[in-house]
């Protein structure tokens, strides 16, 4: 039995799903015997934590500086061009000073060129971790798409959601001891509780995605039942949003994305970097809760980047799998 849970402003909606069919209410004792719990949450209303944002790059017009609300931001020298060339050595002393004096524990680090080369973000993370041992650090290269300010805004939001996401995951673990928990992704699919704690941004609008999935599945079941003369179950109109979202979450499976800019001269090198990206996506989907043997690549997109030298590509990989739990 899989538990679907939709968190809302009032009490959570909970459904038990067996062989694709949902039933409710679910007594607490029964809920605690579930093979896994799939949780849909919308984090839009979550109070964001104050974030210490570190951008690695050059000076820029005031209007293009990092935006943190609440929190503090700095720009330190360093970063790489999209072609992978170092722009300047990383100003490690500036990183150390900022980390030691900002007084915050939730960090977002965004280096110029990190979708191509993440070295400076990793170096900043090591310095921050040494200065602030309890730091929670989001590195923008994990999101991997080009567009410094957008990636930075996402890294900052991910860092800001961290503490509250941790509390939500703690609540679920306390309420359902021993039941492996998954969380619904914004674009559909699930991630493990462990992954959710690190990358809550991937689940920012998980409830909305689950609701759409749940409504569609209910409609299909109703159509199939009316066609086959079977039991149509509860009518669509009778199923409230929380119950439909909980059902939709329970139907999901682990999914993960990897995006990178890669440099590959010639077919053989491109094959090799694509293999690396594939491996990373498979590792990531296992970390997102897929059973290792079930992890598989769903899709790879490779586009040459316009107006840049031959051999620079934007690579996006989607991997999926069966949940290891249940």
């Amino acid at each position: 039995m899989i538990l679907g849970v939709a968190l809302g402003e009032s009490a959570p909606a909970v459904v038990a799903v067996r062989d694709g069919a949902a039933s409710w209410p679910v007594p607490r004792g029964v809920a605690r015997t579930a093979s896994r719990a799939c949780v849909a949450a919308d984090l839009g209303g979550v109070r964001p934590a104050a974030v210490a944002a570190i951008r690695v790059g050059g000076p820029c017009p005031e209007a293009l500086r990092p935006v943190v609300e609440p929190g503090v931001a700095t720009i330190v020298r360093g970063g790489h061009s999209v072609t992978g060339r170092p722009l300047a050595p990383l100003d490690t002393e500036a990183v150390r000073r900022f980390a030691a004096t900002c007084g915050l524990a939730d960090f977002a680090v965004t280096a110029t060129g990190s979708p191509m080369l993440a070295d400076h973000e990793l170096e900043v993370a090591a310095i921050v971790a040494a200065e602030v041992p309890q730091a929670r650090i989001t590195l923008s290269y994990e999101f991997g798409y080009p567009g410094l300010r957008e990636r930075e805004a996402d890294a900052i939001r991910n860092a800001a959601l961290g503490p509250e996401a941790g509390r939500i995951a703690d609540d679920v673990a306390r309420e359902l001891p021993g039941v492996p928990a998954y969380f619904a992704r914004t674009g559909g699919g699930l991630v493990s509780a462990h992954y959710f704690r690190r990358f809550p941004l991937t689940c920012d609008r998980g409830a909305a995605a689950s609701l759409a999935r749940g409504r569609a599945a209910l409609r299909e079941r109703a159509d199939a039942a009316s066609g086959g003369g079977g039991d149509a179950g509860p009518g669509l109109a009778e199923v409230p949003d929380g119950v439909a979202a909980a059902y939709g979450a329970a139907l999901g499976r682990p999914e993960a994305h990897v995006e990178r800019i890669v440099l590959a001269r010639g077919r053989a090198e491109l094959d090799r970097v694509l293999r690396d990206a594939r491996d990373e996506a498979l590792t990531r989907v296992v970390s997102a809760g897929a059973a290792p043997g079930s992890a598989a690549i769903d899709e790879i997109t490779v586009n040459p980047l316009s107006y840049l030298p031959d051999g620079l590509y934007r690579v996006r990989v989607t991997a999926g799998g069966r949940p290891w739990a249940g």
């Binding site: 061009s81 999209v82 110029t112 080009p146 840049l308 934007r314």
Partner: peptide, 14 residues
């Protein structure tokens, strides 16, 4: 001139 992707990643000094 050049790549808009590069501009979006490596910001102008102004």
């Amino acid at each position: 001139v050049g790549s808009t992707t590069a501009l979006g990643e490596q910001l102008p000094a102004g």
